[in-house]
Design a protein around this nucleic acid. Sequence first.
DNA 1: GCGACAG
DNA 2: ATCTTGTCGC
Length: 287
Amino acid sequence: MDLARPDLRPDPSLSRAEMESLQREIAAAATFADDHALDPDSVAVGEAASLADGLPPARSDAVANETLPGTGGAGDESEAPTVVGVDQAFLTDRDDGRPDAAVSAAVALRGGSVIEYASATTPLSIPYIPGLLAFREGDPILAALDALDADPDLLVCDGSGRIHYREAGLATHVGVLRDVPSVGVAKRLLCGEPDESTDERPEGWRTPICADDAVTTAEPGTVIGHAFQSRQYPNRKRVNPLYVSPGHRVSAETAVDLVAALCAGYKLPETTRLADAHAERAKGDAA
DNA sequence: GCGACAG
DNA sequence: ATCTTGTCGC
Protein backbone atom coordinates (compact mmCIF):
# COMPACT_ATOMS: atom_id res chain seq x y z
CA MET A 1 0.00 0.00 0.00
CA ASP A 2 3.09 2.20 0.02
CA LEU A 3 2.55 4.03 3.27
CA ALA A 4 4.82 6.83 4.36
CA ARG A 5 4.22 5.81 7.97
CA PRO A 6 3.66 2.05 8.01
CA ASP A 7 4.22 2.07 11.77
CA LEU A 8 0.96 3.97 12.17
CA ARG A 9 -1.11 1.68 10.01
CA PRO A 10 -4.09 0.47 12.02
CA ASP A 11 -4.23 -3.21 12.83
CA PRO A 12 -7.62 -4.69 11.94
CA SER A 13 -8.15 -6.06 15.44
CA LEU A 14 -7.46 -2.98 17.54
CA SER A 15 -9.54 -2.33 20.63
CA ARG A 16 -11.28 0.99 20.98
CA ALA A 17 -8.65 2.19 23.45
CA GLU A 18 -5.91 1.17 21.02
CA MET A 19 -7.59 3.02 18.18
CA GLU A 20 -7.79 6.15 20.30
CA SER A 21 -4.18 5.76 21.33
CA LEU A 22 -3.14 5.41 17.69
CA GLN A 23 -5.04 8.59 16.90
CA ARG A 24 -2.98 10.48 19.46
CA GLU A 25 0.17 9.23 17.75
CA ILE A 26 -1.18 10.24 14.37
CA ALA A 27 -2.03 13.71 15.65
CA ALA A 28 1.47 14.01 17.11
CA ALA A 29 2.93 13.06 13.73
CA ALA A 30 0.70 15.54 11.91
CA THR A 31 1.75 19.06 10.95
CA PHE A 32 -0.93 21.73 11.15
CA ALA A 33 1.17 24.35 9.38
CA ASP A 34 2.04 25.18 5.77
CA ASP A 35 5.31 23.60 4.85
CA HIS A 36 5.11 23.45 1.10
CA ALA A 37 3.04 26.59 0.70
CA LEU A 38 0.32 25.33 -1.62
CA ASP A 39 -1.04 28.42 -3.32
CA PRO A 40 -4.85 28.48 -3.28
CA ASP A 41 -4.80 30.37 -6.59
CA SER A 42 -2.94 27.51 -8.25
CA VAL A 43 -5.71 25.03 -7.46
CA ALA A 44 -8.65 27.31 -8.22
CA VAL A 45 -11.51 25.83 -10.21
CA GLY A 46 -13.03 28.20 -12.72
CA GLU A 47 -16.23 26.55 -13.84
CA ALA A 48 -18.29 23.89 -12.12
CA ALA A 49 -18.67 20.55 -13.88
CA SER A 50 -22.24 19.84 -14.94
CA LEU A 51 -23.13 16.52 -13.38
CA ALA A 52 -26.47 16.61 -15.15
CA ASP A 53 -25.27 14.83 -18.29
CA GLY A 54 -22.85 12.45 -16.65
CA LEU A 55 -19.37 13.00 -15.34
CA PRO A 56 -16.93 14.93 -17.52
CA PRO A 57 -14.36 12.78 -19.32
CA ALA A 58 -10.87 12.63 -17.87
CA ARG A 59 -8.59 14.83 -19.91
CA SER A 60 -5.51 12.96 -21.02
CA ASP A 61 -2.69 14.59 -19.14
CA ALA A 62 0.04 11.98 -19.47
CA VAL A 63 2.63 14.41 -20.81
CA ALA A 64 2.30 16.80 -17.92
CA ASN A 65 2.62 13.95 -15.44
CA GLU A 66 5.68 12.45 -17.04
CA THR A 67 9.21 13.03 -16.00
CA LEU A 68 11.18 13.79 -19.14
CA PRO A 69 14.41 11.87 -19.55
CA GLY A 70 17.39 13.91 -18.49
CA THR A 71 15.26 16.52 -16.80
CA GLY A 72 15.26 17.25 -13.11
CA GLY A 73 11.78 15.93 -12.55
CA ALA A 74 10.64 17.25 -9.22
CA GLY A 75 8.61 20.39 -8.77
CA ASP A 76 7.92 21.92 -12.14
CA GLU A 77 6.71 25.33 -11.02
CA SER A 78 4.81 25.97 -14.23
CA GLU A 79 2.41 23.07 -13.68
CA ALA A 80 -0.66 23.34 -11.51
CA PRO A 81 -0.79 21.04 -8.47
CA THR A 82 -2.76 17.80 -8.60
CA VAL A 83 -5.69 17.96 -6.21
CA VAL A 84 -7.42 14.69 -5.39
CA GLY A 85 -10.90 14.46 -3.94
CA VAL A 86 -12.00 11.25 -2.22
CA ASP A 87 -15.45 10.07 -1.22
CA GLN A 88 -17.35 6.85 -0.83
CA ALA A 89 -20.65 5.13 -1.30
CA PHE A 90 -21.77 1.95 0.44
CA LEU A 91 -23.21 -1.32 -0.73
CA THR A 92 -25.83 -3.00 1.42
CA ASP A 93 -27.24 -6.45 0.90
CA ARG A 94 -30.99 -5.96 0.75
CA ASP A 95 -31.70 -9.40 2.14
CA ASP A 96 -30.92 -9.71 5.83
CA GLY A 97 -28.62 -7.24 7.55
CA ARG A 98 -25.62 -8.52 5.65
CA PRO A 99 -22.27 -6.81 5.97
CA ASP A 100 -21.67 -4.12 3.41
CA ALA A 101 -18.72 -2.88 1.41
CA ALA A 102 -17.28 0.56 0.79
CA VAL A 103 -16.94 1.85 -2.75
CA SER A 104 -14.26 4.52 -2.65
CA ALA A 105 -13.63 7.00 -5.41
CA ALA A 106 -10.68 9.25 -6.07
CA VAL A 107 -10.84 12.04 -8.63
CA ALA A 108 -7.74 13.95 -9.66
CA LEU A 109 -8.00 17.56 -10.83
CA ARG A 110 -5.42 19.83 -12.39
CA GLY A 111 -6.02 23.37 -13.43
CA GLY A 112 -9.69 22.93 -12.71
CA SER A 113 -10.38 19.88 -14.86
CA VAL A 114 -10.46 16.15 -14.27
CA ILE A 115 -7.36 14.25 -15.30
CA GLU A 116 -8.20 10.88 -13.80
CA TYR A 117 -10.84 8.76 -12.04
CA ALA A 118 -10.19 5.73 -9.86
CA SER A 119 -12.20 3.57 -7.50
CA ALA A 120 -11.91 0.54 -5.26
CA THR A 121 -14.34 -1.72 -3.44
CA THR A 122 -13.33 -2.77 0.07
CA PRO A 123 -15.01 -4.90 2.72
CA LEU A 124 -15.88 -2.91 5.82
CA SER A 125 -14.32 -3.78 9.15
CA ILE A 126 -16.09 -1.73 11.80
CA PRO A 127 -19.37 0.21 11.94
CA TYR A 128 -19.50 3.98 11.96
CA ILE A 129 -18.53 5.32 15.36
CA PRO A 130 -18.21 9.09 15.85
CA GLY A 131 -14.54 9.81 16.40
CA LEU A 132 -13.41 6.56 14.80
CA LEU A 133 -14.55 7.18 11.24
CA ALA A 134 -11.01 6.82 9.90
CA PHE A 135 -10.89 3.20 10.99
CA ARG A 136 -13.93 2.49 8.85
CA GLU A 137 -13.09 4.61 5.82
CA GLY A 138 -9.31 5.02 5.94
CA ASP A 139 -8.28 1.78 4.25
CA PRO A 140 -10.94 2.04 1.54
CA ILE A 141 -9.66 5.53 0.72
CA LEU A 142 -6.07 4.34 0.57
CA ALA A 143 -7.16 1.57 -1.78
CA ALA A 144 -8.73 4.10 -4.14
CA LEU A 145 -5.57 6.22 -3.98
CA ASP A 146 -3.52 3.14 -4.85
CA ALA A 147 -5.67 2.68 -7.94
CA LEU A 148 -4.84 6.22 -9.02
CA ASP A 149 -1.84 6.86 -11.30
CA ALA A 150 -1.59 10.57 -10.54
CA ASP A 151 0.18 11.45 -7.37
CA PRO A 152 -1.58 14.00 -5.20
CA ASP A 153 -0.19 17.34 -4.11
CA LEU A 154 -3.31 17.78 -1.98
CA LEU A 155 -6.04 15.48 -0.72
CA VAL A 156 -9.55 16.72 -0.03
CA CYS A 157 -11.41 14.37 2.29
CA ASP A 158 -15.06 14.03 3.15
CA GLY A 159 -15.03 14.56 6.91
CA SER A 160 -13.00 16.36 9.51
CA GLY A 161 -9.27 16.65 9.93
CA ARG A 162 -8.09 18.50 12.99
CA ILE A 163 -11.68 19.12 14.07
CA HIS A 164 -11.72 15.91 16.08
CA TYR A 165 -11.63 14.76 19.72
CA ARG A 166 -7.97 13.83 19.38
CA GLU A 167 -7.14 16.09 16.40
CA ALA A 168 -6.92 13.00 14.21
CA GLY A 169 -9.95 12.97 11.94
CA LEU A 170 -10.18 11.16 8.63
CA ALA A 171 -8.24 13.80 6.68
CA THR A 172 -5.42 13.80 9.22
CA HIS A 173 -5.35 10.01 9.34
CA VAL A 174 -5.01 9.62 5.56
CA GLY A 175 -2.69 12.61 5.19
CA VAL A 176 -0.25 11.34 7.79
CA LEU A 177 -0.26 7.73 6.59
CA ARG A 178 0.60 8.93 3.09
CA ASP A 179 2.51 12.01 4.22
CA VAL A 180 0.65 14.18 1.74
CA PRO A 181 -0.93 17.58 2.41
CA SER A 182 -4.62 17.13 3.17
CA VAL A 183 -7.72 19.03 4.22
CA GLY A 184 -11.00 17.87 5.69
CA VAL A 185 -14.39 19.15 4.55
CA ALA A 186 -17.30 18.18 6.78
CA LYS A 187 -20.97 19.04 6.39
CA ARG A 188 -21.56 18.87 10.11
CA LEU A 189 -19.52 19.88 13.12
CA LEU A 190 -18.09 17.02 15.20
CA CYS A 191 -16.68 19.10 18.04
CA GLY A 192 -15.30 22.54 18.77
CA GLU A 193 -17.09 25.87 18.95
CA PRO A 194 -17.55 28.53 16.25
CA ASP A 195 -16.23 31.95 17.24
CA GLU A 196 -19.43 33.57 16.01
CA SER A 197 -22.91 32.31 15.27
CA THR A 198 -23.08 30.65 11.85
CA ASP A 199 -26.68 31.71 11.23
CA GLU A 200 -27.58 33.28 7.92
CA ARG A 201 -24.13 34.29 6.80
CA PRO A 202 -23.29 35.61 3.35
CA GLU A 203 -21.39 33.56 0.81
CA GLY A 204 -17.66 33.62 1.47
CA TRP A 205 -18.06 34.27 5.19
CA ARG A 206 -15.94 32.30 7.63
CA THR A 207 -15.26 32.07 11.33
CA PRO A 208 -12.71 30.08 13.32
CA ILE A 209 -13.65 26.85 15.09
CA CYS A 210 -11.96 26.72 18.47
CA ALA A 211 -11.18 23.66 20.54
CA ASP A 212 -13.60 23.05 23.40
CA ASP A 213 -13.62 20.52 26.23
CA ALA A 214 -14.41 17.71 23.80
CA VAL A 215 -11.02 18.17 22.14
CA THR A 216 -8.80 16.33 24.58
CA THR A 217 -5.44 16.96 22.94
CA ALA A 218 -5.51 20.74 22.47
CA GLU A 219 -5.65 23.74 24.74
CA PRO A 220 -9.21 25.11 24.78
CA GLY A 221 -9.41 28.01 22.36
CA THR A 222 -6.92 26.59 19.89
CA VAL A 223 -8.10 27.26 16.33
CA ILE A 224 -8.68 23.82 14.81
CA GLY A 225 -10.57 24.81 11.68
CA HIS A 226 -13.19 27.13 10.23
CA ALA A 227 -16.86 27.26 9.46
CA PHE A 228 -17.13 28.42 5.85
CA GLN A 229 -20.27 29.62 4.11
CA SER A 230 -19.53 28.27 0.65
CA ARG A 231 -22.99 28.84 -0.74
CA GLN A 232 -26.08 30.90 0.00
CA TYR A 233 -29.34 31.33 -1.86
CA PRO A 234 -30.56 34.89 -2.42
CA ASN A 235 -34.15 34.45 -1.38
CA ARG A 236 -34.46 31.08 0.16
CA LYS A 237 -33.88 29.04 3.25
CA ARG A 238 -30.50 29.01 4.81
CA VAL A 239 -27.67 26.76 3.73
CA ASN A 240 -25.49 25.25 6.42
CA PRO A 241 -21.81 26.14 6.27
CA LEU A 242 -18.99 23.70 5.65
CA TYR A 243 -16.56 22.83 8.42
CA VAL A 244 -13.05 22.94 7.01
CA SER A 245 -10.01 21.77 8.92
CA PRO A 246 -6.36 20.96 8.28
CA GLY A 247 -5.54 17.33 7.72
CA HIS A 248 -1.77 17.38 7.43
CA ARG A 249 0.91 19.86 6.33
CA VAL A 250 -1.63 22.67 5.92
CA SER A 251 -2.64 25.46 8.30
CA ALA A 252 -6.24 26.14 9.29
CA GLU A 253 -6.20 29.38 7.31
CA THR A 254 -4.75 27.85 4.16
CA ALA A 255 -7.14 24.91 4.42
CA VAL A 256 -10.17 27.18 4.19
CA ASP A 257 -8.54 29.26 1.42
CA LEU A 258 -7.89 26.10 -0.58
CA VAL A 259 -11.44 24.88 -0.16
CA ALA A 260 -12.80 28.30 -1.12
CA ALA A 261 -10.71 28.15 -4.31
CA LEU A 262 -12.06 24.68 -5.08
CA CYS A 263 -15.70 25.78 -4.80
CA ALA A 264 -17.38 26.79 -8.04
CA GLY A 265 -20.94 27.81 -7.28
CA TYR A 266 -22.05 24.81 -5.26
CA LYS A 267 -21.99 24.19 -1.55
CA LEU A 268 -19.40 21.45 -1.90
CA PRO A 269 -15.97 21.87 -3.50
CA GLU A 270 -15.67 20.39 -7.00
CA THR A 271 -13.34 17.68 -5.76
CA THR A 272 -16.01 16.39 -3.41
CA ARG A 273 -18.88 16.72 -5.89
CA LEU A 274 -16.96 14.78 -8.52
CA ALA A 275 -15.72 12.12 -6.13
CA ASP A 276 -19.23 11.66 -4.79
CA ALA A 277 -20.64 11.27 -8.28
CA HIS A 278 -17.93 8.85 -9.28
CA ALA A 279 -18.50 6.74 -6.16
CA GLU A 280 -22.19 6.54 -7.05
CA ARG A 281 -21.33 5.51 -10.61
CA ALA A 282 -18.93 2.82 -9.40
CA LYS A 283 -21.52 1.59 -6.94
CA GLY A 284 -24.06 1.32 -9.73
CA ASP A 285 -21.59 -0.56 -11.93
CA ALA A 286 -21.04 -3.06 -9.11
CA ALA A 287 -24.76 -3.59 -8.63
C1' DG B 1 -28.09 9.31 34.28
C1' DC B 2 -28.24 13.08 30.31
C1' DG B 3 -26.50 15.16 26.20
C1' DA B 4 -23.41 15.16 21.90
C1' DC B 5 -21.53 12.84 18.22
C1' DA B 6 -17.77 13.56 10.80
C1' DG B 7 -19.79 9.47 7.43
C1' DA C 1 -23.84 6.84 4.92
C1' DT C 2 -28.64 4.56 3.16
C1' DC C 3 -33.91 4.07 2.27
C1' DT C 4 -37.27 7.49 -0.88
C1' DT C 5 -41.74 11.52 -3.15
C1' DG C 6 -42.77 15.52 -3.64
C1' DT C 7 -41.84 20.34 -3.71
C1' DC C 8 -40.00 24.97 -3.95
C1' DG C 9 -37.36 28.37 -6.59
C1' DC C 10 -33.93 30.01 -9.97
